[in-house]
């Protein structure tokens, strides 16, 4: 019982939810999400059903995209483009953390009510998945900053992936669906960045014009 790997990993995932609620800056939030992505993608290794060669490669690729490529691209994007670093909370950080605790309790309760048989080996798996979904939704709701909202979306996506791993021990297509959503998120990120670049350059332009006038 001591330090069961899956449960430990899932505890870390839940922890990252709390930290993401508490972080006030985008870079911090991105780091938390990257950590969450890596950790979430590691879960299939330890669940260990049909981990054949293809499966391992598949999981590695997910890990790469989820944990490194997406966070990195967002990070670089906000570095290059002058986007506000504050996540602009609608619900304050203290309240968010307490809400997070409440969400986790609720997720635990809900998952117990659902009581899905196939995943009863890993008690924390389903609650974590639901907690991620709900927490992502909460971030979408409670943060004004667009990038923070995208990150909330990514968190939801992590949750979907976890649900996928719980149910899809044989059904791969749900995992593929996860990847699909990854791509979707990527597209969304790009769209927002483009829009931001446009707006920022506009801003820069007007500022320049004003300096020219003086």
């Amino acid at each position: 019982m001591i330090l069961h790997p899956v449960d430990t990993i899932l505890s870390l995932v839940l922890l990252s939810v709390l930290f993401s609620f508490g972080s006030s800056r985008l870079p911090g939030l991105i780091k938390v999400l990257a950590f969450q992505g890596i950790v979430v993608s590691m879960v299939p290794f330890f669940i260990g059903h049909d981990m054949n060669g293809g499966g391992i490669v598949f999981t590695f690729v997910t890990l790469l995209i989820r944990g490194i490529i997406i966070p990195m691209s967002i990070y670089i994007a906000i570095k290059k483009v002058a986007i506000k670093r504050e996540v602009e909370p609608i619900i304050g950080y203290h309240a968010s953390i307490l809400c997070g605790l409440g969400l986790i309790v609720a997720a635990t309760y809900i998952s117990r009510q659902l009581n899905i048989v196939s995943i009863s080996d890993y008690k924390l798996l389903f609650p974590t998945a639901i907690a991620l979904l709900v927490a992502g939704m909460f971030l979408l709701m409670a943060r004004r900053n667009a990038i923070a909202m995208v990150l909330g979306y990514i968190m939801m996506e992590n949750g979907i992936y976890l649900v996928g791993t719980t149910i899809s021990i044989r059904a791969r297509h749900i995992v593929e669906f996860g990847i699909l959503l990854d791509v979707l998120a990527g597209v969304m990120i790009m769209a927002i960045i483009l829009q931001n670049i446009k707006r920022t350059f506009d801003d820069v332009d007007t500022a320049n014009l004003r300096t020219l006038k003086e």
Binding site: M1, D7, S11, L14, L15, L18, F19, G22, Y93, H94, I97, L98, G100, L101, I104, V105, T108, K123, L124, P127
Partner: peptide, 20 residues
């Protein structure tokens, strides 16, 4: 907020033990 994190962690650990 930092100190609240420690409360959150402890609370959270208690919730998880409820599972175990």
């Amino acid at each position: 907020q930092f100190v609240l994190t420690s409360f959150a962690l402890a609370f959270f650990a208690t919730i998880i033990t409820l599972e175990f």
